[in-house]
Amino acid sequence: MQNLLEIKDLKIKTLRNKEEVMLLDKVSLNIAPGQCLGIVGESGCGKSITANALLKLLPYPLSVSSGKAMFNSPSLGTVDLLSLEENAMRSIRGREIAMIFQEPMTSLDPIFTIERQMKEALEFHHAHMHEKEKHDRCVEVLKQVNIPRIEQTLGSYPHQLSGGQLQRIMIAIALINTPTLLIADEPTTALDVTIQAQILELMNKLKHEQNASVMFITHDLGVIAETSEQVAVFYSGHIVEEASAEELFYRPAHPYTEGLIKSISSLNEKGNQLYSIPGNVPPGGELKSYCHFLDRCKYAEDSCKRGLPKLVEVAPKHYCRCFRHSMEVEV
């Protein structure tokens, strides 16, 4: 397998009033070694559950109903993450695939010191590591993420540190076992712009140093533009467009992507009105039989109701799910 990760036709469902509701459908994504894949979308579009499904972290009643996620594991060979036994998953989770969560303030345990929490990640995968070795490894990764006063930080509790520092520590914990794939779920959303700039710079630096692949989930197109080579746009449980960052920002093919980019760039122009996409973000779990963006689309026609458009290649390596580009219907 050439890619590090290949997700094929991922489908996630949940239970609502004892009825099965589909939250995510027909999601296929590839991540090449050393590549950063950006996933962008608004709340409820399914971007976070995709990441959680990969590590078997979906909370009840959510579950994967079908699909495959082939991962090129350094220790186990090519495995399907979705059908992996819990034991095998444990050896991958946190070691080969690590995750950085959105809110550093709530993801760290308030009653343990930073050192204790960092060592936990090490001990889990390296049971016989010497105490001194563990300490040195903690110091080493904290240096990588530019934490000042390392010894003092190791002895602190989360409430004694700022949000920016905590997010660095979260990144340090994710890196401590040198993973091959890093999943970052809105890692800078809770942070200020100047701190966000520091964290993004740090992540770009680490990606080059460690040659790790990154799956970067965010709602901020600006952040995507600065970090990702490849971008997938999610809307209401589907991928509506996928392309390289350059292609996507210069030649958006889907009306939703186009609208998002326009509404951001119209902020830079003095004018009377901002460009806005009408309507509301659909709540999760309402997979319709036709194009999900139809109600908000300015190009919508009656014929758009004939079915769900297929994700087709509209330009080399540029995929889009819209009838304006192809008449093909998803079966």
């Binding site: 712009v193 966000q196 952040v223």
Partner: peptide
Amino acid sequence: ALLDAVPNIDPL
């Protein structure tokens, strides 16, 4: 510094 920190949507 604050203005410089704003992410730019132009990937180039």
